[in-house]
């Protein structure tokens, strides 16, 4: 299967590989996918007090497109606010990487990973500040 130049670029030079301290309060961690299905993505964000994403890291078990999709997602997240990050759509990733139809699920997984990381960050920060009532809200989701 031929890969687009962008996929090859992210695959050969993945951006933001690594791990942040998953126990830190300002870090949100999303782990999605399943090894039996051939893809697992771990995506982490570090958020400052203004709600801006100051760092993002990933580790991915999966095919080249999955690795490229998560690399691109972390690149895109850095510098944005958490609010902006919730607007990331899998189609943005798929288009940017010119993913063929059989690889669309890789971009879906990347979107899920971003969402899961944001959820995790919100949950942690709601818990530390229960009086805001945010906790109730996130618990339901």
């Amino acid at each position: 299967m031929p890969y687009s130049d962008k996929v090859m670029d992210h695959f050969t030079n993945p951006r933001n590989v690594g791990s942040l301290d998953k126990n830190a309060l300002d870090v949100g961690t999303g782990i999605v996918g399943a090894p039996e299905c051939g893809d697992v993505m771990k995506l982490q964000i570090q958020v400052d007090s203004d709600g801006r994403i100051v760092d993002a890291k990933f580790k991915t078990f999966g095919c080249g497109s999955a690795i490229a999709a998560s690399s691109l997602a972390t690149e895109w997240l850095k510098g944005r606010t958490v609010q902006q990050a919730t607007e990331l759509r899998n189609s943005d990733i798929a288009n940017e990487l010119s993913l063929p139809p059989v690889k669309i699920h890789c971009s879906v997984l990347a979107e899920d990973a971003v969402k899961a990381a944001i959820e995790d960050w919100k949950r942690k920060n709601a818990r530390s500040d229960a009086s805001t009532g945010q906790m109730e809200e996130t618990k339901r989701t």
Binding site: P14, V17, S19, V40, M41, K42, K59, T60, F61, I67
Partner: peptide
Amino acid sequence: RELSPLYE
């Protein structure tokens, strides 16, 4: 494996 969350 350096990229793999499963290996980590």
